[in-house]
């Protein structure tokens, strides 16, 4: 940690003093990754829910930046954790749509040929991902889409690296089993 200073620490301090430019820089730096995380976690729901989760996470940043203590944990890790918690809350409010139901959902914007095929494939993968238990899904999304190390992902989820690796292994196995079964059907 000492050799690798938090790249967000300075920005967060400035945000705490009400610096709008710092807020915009921080938002542009993290918004795409956080939105991807929320969209993959809330795949079975309307995209607006993922946007709400991310907006809520940034609101927490704006409100608490003045009290942020650099050096404890990386700011980005804390940010991931806030978004994950927002997603978990939303997932608990409504039951998950099952894979079969997601499969039968018609594509709202049908397009011809390869585009349609790619969209269908993506929709199947999204549905399979959405049907995984939420912690397995979080582990997969954090490690795959965000390209985090296992250490960062484990910190963001508040678990040990061993527990994360176990979640990853089970998540990958389930994903492969589900998608292979669908492909064979």
């Amino acid at each position: 940690m000492g050799t690798n200073p938090d790249p967000d620490a300075e920005l967060v301090l400035r945000i705490g003093r009400g610096d709008r430019a710092a807020a915009e820089t921080l938002m542009r730096r993290h918004l795409p990754k956080l939105l991807t995380l929320a969209r993959r976690m809330l795949a079975a729901r309307a995209p607006a829910e993922a946007e709400d989760a991310v907006q809520e996470a940034f609101l927490r940043v704006w409100q608490h930046a003045g009290r942020w203590k650099p050096g404890k944990a990386r700011f980005e890790t804390w940010l991931y954790r806030v978004v994950l918690n927002q997603c978990y809350d939303r997932l608990r409010k409504k039951p998950m749509a099952d894979l079969a139901a997601a499969e039968e959902t018609p594509d709202p914007s049908p397009s011809p040929g390869a585009v349609l095929e790619a969209a269908e494939r993506a929709s199947t993968v999204e549905a399979a991902l959405a049907s995984l238990p939420e912690r397995q899904r979080a582990a997969l999304v954090l490690c795959h889409f965000e390209e985090n190390t296992n250490i960062v992902a484990a910190e963001a989820m508040g678990i040990s690296v061993e527990a994360l690796e176990s979640l990853l292994a089970r998540g990958r196995r389930s994903l492969r089993t589900m998608l292979s079964a669908l492909r064979d059907a």
Binding site: R40, A118, R121, A122, V125, E126, A128, L129, L140, H144, F145, L168, A169, G171, R172, R173, L175, R176, L179
Partner: peptide, 13 residues
């Protein structure tokens, strides 16, 4: 193999 499959599959999104 599971890991490779997951990487290939998730990359299609």
């Amino acid at each position: 193999e599971d890991a490779r499959f997951a990487v290939e599959t998730l990359s299609t999104l």
